[in-house]
Design a protein around this nucleic acid. Structure first.
Lengths: 346, 346
DNA sequence: CTGAAAGCGCTAACAG
DNA sequence: CTGTTAGCGCTTTCAG
């Protein structure tokens, strides 16, 4: 009954459950039990197994486990571009939450390419990931139906979908933009401009512009609503954007930008043109990336809880994977205005 | 001969190779063959299989495959902190190279915790990753022996080891620091200071300080070699570091910092103290992170090819995994001085 | 409480 | 060229 195809403790091969069983003089089921339900194994055998495991430095093969359990404890994340400090921070939250909940994180950059998006989805499916984190892009119907067909749990991160019933976590972009504009207005500014993301971006583009416009409207400043420059949110040059804005609206006293990078580029451009911030122009950014506290002058901005967004997203995914209760489908985390030195009362 | 434990095309279950075989009316081996060696299958059957695959939207289970092939096409990367713009850029290179070579990337943040480092190593091993990317930390003997014991291919990224025969890719830190200091000296500066990483960091700490000192020595400026402040490379506050330096060396005309973030913090601090860059003080950074081209003034710095470091690291790992020829064990990529506006001739 | 046996989904000899 | 048959390493009934 002895298997000839099997090694006799060949030191070059990774030890398997069989080796442990042999050494401990029990069946492989018993070994399996001490790993998955130790309380069902009698003390004496359990110890023998534990010792064998220790001696062999045995570690279970997750592939074999996953093949049976249908769980890989791995989740896939698609991100537009990890170099963006915003996403870097979000990912950090995802990582920590993943570690906390026993998952590994496979990260993929999409550059918003539809092809890559699908290619990664396919790859995730083949690798049997337990779930998918879909970041900062709107949910396309064809992507949705594919995800649905593959029965892959998903949570949307820094984006959401009204069209589909998908869990998501993000801030309230419209309100955040409103608050930013309101901050400027409360400081006495009446000629305000905006650098935003294109309106085709329904998540960070439209919403923030709408918030900006609502603030203007509520304060009788509707004439400002054309003091706007839109950039492609995925491949913009902050300096160029600044240049366009200054050319288009030379007489404003404050500008709100849809990202801190845009604000930083603007301040760089202004500085080189001899325009002082905040003396000549107030600037308020968006995101509160780390760098924004070291700009010259330090940047006033609306802070997003980036780390928490990532962290919470994993928790939601975990809940979904395990059928746990998760009361709020579309979750909104609070934003906050951080007043620093780039804005002033006028 | 019919298996009762197997479904009859239950729509809720993922299709397996068996379903494809049944539908195409061939054996599972044939299906396997059209996936792995299509040329060995006769056209007619191949088409039937292909159609069945298409109809069922069949996708092979990578776990089952990996269990046999001993390859998961997955690599693990340990990184100190993904939020650091330097690593973010490196990871982007890793990602692209991974995609290119058919790997998925599992990313883990260590915060340089020894525990996390080992815990992730263990996890990688259980998940049967094909190889390991070890970033920016020196190789500890106990870690090395564990990696060795697990027979896990490794490449060191932005770090290297003279003690162990491990492939690595990084720049020449000593020379890069030398060049930075030399740039300042060539500009006429004679009172130069340095903000560096602690000397216990043998990779980015010692080497850069040594390069700095060598430049001083070669130009008879050895008296400057104590114009130095060291920070913990993993948890420093750039503003605090700047404060220390200015307090310690109030009379220097130029400072070289071991990272762009340190330089940015310094410029922020200086600006708030009314010290002008570069008029009163020249500053040269290190890394050339994206932000450094938008600082006020734009930062002169020594550029590391971060993206390429990550990219090349994956290629080296790939070569190692597959026993391909890779002539240079310890690879050094070129750095470059980028002169912008934060330095001036004196 | 414990072992034998049957797979998870797939690849790889090995015969035909 | 193609089907049959063993497993990869592990979990999970099912008897005992």
């Amino acid at each position: 009954m002895k298997s000839f195809s099997r090694k006799e403790l060949d030191y070059r091969m990774k030890p398997t459950i069989r080796d442990v069983a042999k050494l401990a003089n029990v069946s492989i089921s018993t070994v399996s039990r001490v790993m998955n339900a130790p309380e069902t194994v009698v003390e004496s055998k359990k110890n023998r197994v534990l010792n064998a495991i220790e001696e062999l430095q045995y570690k279970p093969n997750a592939l074999a486990r996953g093949l049976i359990s249908k769980k890989t404890h791995t989740i896939g994340a698609v991100i537009p571009d990890i170099r963006n400090p915003y996403y870097a921070e979000v990912i950090r939250g995802m990582e920590d939450a993943s570690k906390r909940n026993g998952y590994s994180l496979i990260i993929c950059n999409t550059d918003r390419s539809h092809n890559r998006l699908f290619s990664y989805l396919n790859n995730f499916y083949e690798k049997q990931v337990d779930g998918l984190l879909y970041t900062s892009d709107s949910m396309y119907p064809d992507y949705y139906s594919e995800v649905k067909r593959l029965r892959l749990p998903v949570v949307l991160v820094s984006t959401h979908s009204m069209e589909f019933e998908l869990p998501s976590v993000k801030i309230n972009d419209e309100q955040a933009a409103y608050d930013a504009a309101k901050t400027l207005i409360d400081l006495g500014h009446r000629r305000i401009a905006f650098i935003g993301f294109e309106l085709t971006d329904s998540i960070a583009g439209q919403t923030r512009y709408q918030g900006f416009v609502r603030a203007l409207r509520e304060h009788g400043l509707e004439s400002c609503k054309d003091n706007v420059v839109f950039v492609d949110g995925w491949s913009y040059d902050p300096i160029l954007a600044a240049e366009s804005l200054v050319a288009k609206c030379p007489n404003v006293s404050a500008v709100f930008t849809a990202s801190d990078e845009l604000a930083i580029g603007l301040m760089c451009y202004l500085s080189e043109r001899g325009i002082r911030v905040p003396d000549d122009l107030s600037v308020i950014g968006f995101d509160n990336i780390r760098m924004s506290s070291m700009t010259i002058p330090r940047l006033t901005t609306v802070a997003q809880p980036m780390y928490q967004i990532g962290y919470r997203a994993v928790e939601k995914l975990h809940a979904q994977i395990n059928g746990l209760n998760d009361p709020v489908l579309r979750e909104q985390l609070p934003h906050e205005i951080i007043v620093r030195a780039s804005t002033r009362r006028i």
